[in-house]
Amino acid sequence: MTNELKQLAPDRIKRNPDNPRIFFRSEEMDTLTASIKRYGIQVPITVYQDGRHYVLIDGERRWRCALKLNLPSIPALIQEKPSPLRNLLLMFNIHALREQWDYFTIARKLPDVIGLFKKENRGREPTEIELSELTGLTRGQIRRCRFLLDLPEKYHEILARELSLPKNLQTLSEDFFIEMERALKTVNTRLPTAIRNMDTARDVLIQKFRSKTIKNITDFRMLSKMATSIGRVGMQEEKALEAIKQILNPQRKVGIQEIFAEHFEMRFDERKVLLSVDSIYEYLEISIDAEDADEISEELRGRLVKLRTLITRVLGR
């Protein structure tokens, strides 16, 4: 019976309760339905038999389209019933190689993979490398999932609600939460007194993002920079703390970009210039020591002369 190809009535097939995919967006489903209507199902779905019915291993979207199109039958490869861990890992690997699931989808199922792995390995938790090998996900993807996984349930619900919306109606995305969590983690590590309550901070940032006070999810990287500014650009701790507190204050209609531009941008720009100056300095020093110092190109010589004039004007004679 293993790997037997059959035509099955869609009504005899049941969805797999362990399928990590939880969002079936109308836009995507509609495109697939149109394609199936036109060309039929070209790739068989994969199922295993469970009594009088069959359970999906792979192909839930195709099966849903077949139901919607009222197709009398659907091509299906029938496999042996897999073990619970194998069942889950089959689905992970199919999607790691093909169209990727939402991170949130993966995040919700990762604990199941870890749990089943522990059961089969005398309670030992898989390492990140093992998890990557098992699921077909990169370690970076696993880390991103963990950010989502570590969110309190309340935010899982918010994210699930957002992800079930059509794309044009979504405000918060998985990337939003990942960027926000990264930034909050950095702030919490570098300036622990800046955040009294993580959930309150999250709520303020979500509210400011929804109201477009925070304009872009990449703004959260500036928040991280603010937290690291003490060590990196010599910012005073009180100033950095005060700036972050302003962002986390729901009463103040101020975003990350404005605060960063006002208090930090110059410092970070100066740091960039410093690195460039160091690099010029190093190059010139090497040139002086070298025997072919006179062989600096005309173009570079011209620019250095210009730079000298400008430096004299800025610093005075």
């Binding site: 109308s26 836009e27 509609d30 495109t31 339905t33 149109a34 209507k37 919607k68 919306l165 059509p166």
Partner: peptide
């Protein structure tokens, strides 16, 4: 019931 107004399946 759908999130997309006038789906392909309805059209067809």
């Amino acid at each position: 019931v759908d999130d997309k107004i006038y789906t392909e399946v309805l059209k067809s």
